[in-house]
Every structure is written in structure tokens, then in C-alpha cells.
Design a protein around this nucleic acid. Structure first.
Lengths: 158, 158, 158
DNA sequence: GCCGTTCTAGAATATTCGAAG
DNA sequence: GCTTCGAATATTCTAGAACGG
């Protein structure tokens, strides 16, 4: 079995991805979370047991939302099955995720998965309130000028 | 049978269209909703059973009007055929809809169907900046006019 | 007990708030979700039962995340209590939320809770299209004044 | 600095209601 | 009467932001 490595020479695979991989490789978890039938996606079969039993064994929390935040951070996308739209029974709480470089048996692809950068926003030159305030100030100045001019005109007419 | 896909590389087909397609492909629904004879349109044969039995299995509601709102949102138009207009006496009301890219057996056309944009003012980001630029330009023009007028006034006073 | 009303003359209270209120007023839910000891906040005592048993009875879903999204949309904020901050043992995850106009016994305050508008990214909440429209209107008025003034000037020159 | 956890918000589609044409 | 559409809220999925390790 090929295992993901953090050896020298290759960029290290973040802990989250290593844990996610280990989690799916452990057969004792397979009734709660497992690879999809074709190994292309993975599926959380029992949301409740996953968050309360599995998560704390691998992470510092037991919140599914935190786990999903990490998945999105690494570029995973939710797979929308037709069943997911139904409200009916509760046996269909299958949460499925996918990533182009996260495939069963392809541990060597893991290093291609990159965490999204923490956007240190470079101050978009978009429209700020300052810009609008400048315009408003100019308008006010122009109004004064117009008022002065109108006064002058009336004076001249007389 | 060709199935609609939401694979990577192609823009995903919205859930509504996928469900509508699945709905029509399921033979167990064919006595309630089905493709028209030539596969160009689809027809709701039994309005009551459709809304109360079929809809809640695919959507989070059981209202025909909500279903039709979605159809219109995606550009479907009601077909006013002679049959449906005249022979509605007792063989049920046949509600027929049509879309140029929604044809039986042509799942690959689905991705051409576009949802109409919500007319909310979400275009504020760039629209505002463009409009602000227009205002700024107008302000500049008005300043020139005011300067000219003020010059005229001073000339007249002398 | 005072109940929230959607009577004529007062702006209607959105369905979400009415349901949240009803949910908390129903004693049969009190072991899953209830007002805090002083009635200032409310607390979800059993996350699992709340999402799978309570939510689908009031909403069209059973996802806690969707419920929380609505809470934030209406301005509710999570309360970080000491208990919930600790990586506690197992005495249950208490999720507590608060809103200045959502207090036990004060149904008349509900109409003050406003949903956030579905708009834009700018962190300037005051920069709206309305503001720009005001400026544009002012500009138009000023143009008329200027035109009048210019006419007067030409008349005087002759 | 990068990563992990949490809370909140953005963005797109979905559902409802009622008015426009 | 009837089809289509506007607008508000609702639901879902993803991202922003703050903070700590």
C-alpha cells in the first residue's frame, strides 16, 4: 500500500490532508466515512457519528463545520447527488466531497493539493466612501459659487 | 442512455435541471409526467399527482406554482397546443412546456440552459465606480462652465 | 403570554423569526432548545436532536448550518460562554445565540429585527446606489441653474 | 509565517407570493 | 383568465476574517 510521505525533497503535505487520508484508510471508520464506489470521491455516511466519534480522534474539535471549512480551504467541493435534494427520510445524509488530486490509491497526488492563501487584501481601488465624500464636497463648493454668481447677476440687473 | 454530468471542466448543471431530467427519465413517473410524442416538449399529465406525489420527492415543496416559477426562471415557455387547449374536458389537464435546449435524449444540451439573473442590484461594485466616474467628469465640465461664467460676469462689471 | 403578531398596520415579522419564537415557546422542545436562565439569550442544548428532530418540523431542511446562517442573517451573534469555550468533557454542546431585540417575553421587540440586505462586498455600508443617486440628482439641478444663469448673462450682454 | 478552529458573510440557487402584462 | 416576472425570504455551499498555536 502506498502511503503519503513527508520525506525530504518533496514539499510537506499538510497535517489535515494526511489525517484525512489516514481516516479513510482505516477500515474501522468505513461505516461512517469511506471512499465512494469508484474511489473518485469520499462520503460521510453518518454525520452524527463522524463529528462526535471520528473527528475528535484526529483533530482538536468535533464540529463538522470546521472540518468542512478545511475541505473548502484545500479546494474540495461538495458533490451534489440527486438524493441530497430530498427532505424525506433521514437515511440519506450522505455528504460527499471531491478533489481532482484526492483519489483512492493515488497518495502521490496529495502533494498537488494546495491550501488557499490567506488573502492579505491589497486594498481594492474600488469605490470607497472617501471617493463619494470628495464628490459631495465639490458639489457643495460649486453650490456656493453658483449662489455668489446669482447674487452678482441680480445686482447687475438692478 | 446518456446521462447529464456535473464533471469537472464543464460548468455545473443546476440542481433543478438535473432533477427535471431525472424526473422525466424515470419510467415510474411516466403516467404523471413525460416527454411529448416527439421528444420536443414535456407534459404534465396529472397535475394533482404530480404536485403531491412527484414534486416532494425531488424538491423541498409540493407546489406546482413553485415548479413553474423555476421553469420560467430557466427560460422554459408553456406550449399552447390545440390538444391542451381544447380537449381538456375529462382526460386531465395537460400542462406542456418547452425549451430549445431541453430535448429528449440530448442531455449534452442541458449546459446551454442558463438561469435568468436575479435583478438585485448586485452589480453595485463596478457599476458604482463607472457611474462615479461619470459624475466626476460631469463635475469637471461644470467647473469649466462656472469659470467661464464668472469671467463673463467680471467683464460685464467693468 | 404575549405573542408576536403579523397584524395589519405593523410591518410583518419574517417567517424565520416567527418560527424561532414559536420553537422556543413550545415546552416540548425545552430539553433541546430553550431560553437562557435570564431570558436574554437562547441555547441549543442538544445539537443532534435539534437538527434532526426539531428543525424539519419548522423548516424545509434539517441542517444546523442553514439555521445558523439565518441567525447571522438577522443579526444574531453567538455567545461565547465559559462552558462552551472549554474543550469540555461530554455534558453536551451548548450553542448560545443572542440578539438585542430577541428577549424572552418581549415579543413586541421582534419587529425591530431586520434581515440584512443581500448586497455588496464593500465594507462601507453607507455607500449605496441611493447615495450616488442623490449626487446625480443634485448635479442635474445644478445644471439647470447654470443654464438659467448663462441665459441671463447673454441677455445682459445685449 | 503557515496552519487550524471558529464565527460570520458572500454568492448562487430555491421557494413563496403577488403584481405586471 | 392566464402566463410570466419582480422581489423578498430561505437553503446551500464556499469564502472572509480574527485569533491562537
Amino acid at each position: 500500500m502506498k502511503e503519503p510521505s513527508t520525506s525530504v525533497g518533496s514539499p510537506p503535505v499538510p497535517a489535515f490532508l494526511m489525517k484525512l487520508w489516514a481516516l479513510l484508510e482505516d477500515p474501522s471508520n468505513s461505516d461512517v466515512i469511506t471512499w465512494s464506489w469508484n474511489g473518485q470521491n469520499f462520503c460521510i455516511l453518518d454525520e452524527q457519528r463522524f463529528s462526535k466519534e471520528i473527528l475528535p480522534k484526529y483533530f482538536k474539535h468535533n464540529n463538522l463545520s470546521s472540518f468542512i471549512r478545511q475541505l473548502n480551504m484545500y479546494g474540495f467541493r461538495k458533490v451534489m447527488s440527486l438524493e441530497s435534494g430530498l427532505l424525506k427520510s433521514d437515511h440519506g445524509s450522505c455528504i460527499e466531497f471531491q478533489h481532482p488530486f484526492f483519489k483512492k490509491g493515488k497518495a502521490e497526488l496529495l502533494e498537488n493539493i494546495k491550501r488557499k492563501m490567506s488573502t492579505v487584501k491589497s486594498e481594492d481601488p474600488h469605490l470607497t466612501q472617501e471617493d463619494l465624500q470628495k464628490v459631495v464636497t465639490e458639489l457643495k463648493d460649486m453650490k456656493e459659487v453658483q449662489s455668489d454668481m446669482d447674487t452678482k447677476l441680480e445686482n447687475m440687473r438692478r
